[in-house]
Design a protein around this nucleic acid. Structure first.
Lengths: 142, 142
DNA sequence: TTTACATCCTCTAGCTACTGTAGGTTCAAG
DNA sequence: CTTGAACCTACAGTAGCTAGAGGATGTAAA
């Protein structure tokens, strides 16, 4: 049986995060000692590892909830899990495209800065005047 | 003189967002009509455009605050603005590297899924077992 | 057995950067 | 003078945690 701290260490999670996952129903309520402390078994360790790994791959908690549900029902079709992963892949690719445009623009800003006064700083100038931008970077948000 | 709604339209910002920027001190308190409605001039339009553009480039509100301050003091050295932009560029490049690793892993997951039952779904399997991953995608967060 | 102290508990608030809603007021056109 | 869009304030909610207060528990050494 693992304490919450040990589980945290084993999975690279903060203790508070584990309690948070329990609170939002992503992790089950574990057994408790007489004194009221949580004790975890192997199943919980597996589940939390799954959650953490999915988080590392950028899945939202909602997506993870679905994936866990699928994982709990081995008979169900794989198609849904596949769809969720494809959706995630698409999102990642969109973000990549956006970040690449940002990198281009930032690089240009930085390279053109000659290090004088702010009155003729290229960085500030570009920010002031959007028309100086070469690439498209319209939407805000990651 | 512009109403908040017109300013919003001109800058592609939501009305509430403008009020929010005012609240956190990113935008100055504008003049008001007798009835208490906000009225904006050209200076505010420029400032908000600057803020929005910087947001589109991914700068945090804190970074934007610094940039605005620099922009307000034309005599100051350009070095700080340059440093902020470089920091931002570095961050973008880090995120790019991370997202590329994610894309690789997600692609592999998706491609290996043969569409059967969840019991032998590659997507779920990979999530269950981190050791199946080829790339490094340790840290969570964007 | 006592004591020390790390770890645990709950609860609440805070973070970023907004966005949405409720309930009421003002402005400009007709 | 009336209508209706746009404005006002204030507060709550979003994602996904993270931090802190103030107190209880568990374990190992003295």
């Amino acid at each position: 049986m693992l304490t919450i701290g040990t589980l945290a260490k084993k999975t690279g999670t903060k203790v508070q995060t584990i309690r948070y996952y329990e609170q939002i129903g992503l992790m089950p309520e574990p057994g408790r000692t007489e004194g009221g402390q949580r004790r975890y078994g192997a199943a919980e360790l597996d589940r939390l590892s799954f959650v953490r790994h999915a988080r590392q791959l950028g899945f939202s908690l909602d997506a993870i909830r679905e994936l866990l549900d699928l994982s709990d029902h081995p008979g169900k079709s794989c198609a849904e899990a596949d769809a969720i992963a494809r959706r995630q892949l698409k999102q990642v690719e969109q973000r990549l495209a956006r970040l690449e445009a940002l990198r281009t623009e930032l690089k240009r800003m930085v390279h053109e800065c000659s290090g004088g006064q702010t009155s003729d700083c290229r960085v500030l100038e570009v920010l002031r005047d959007h028309s100086e931008c070469l690439t498209d970077h319209e939407e805000i948000g990651a």
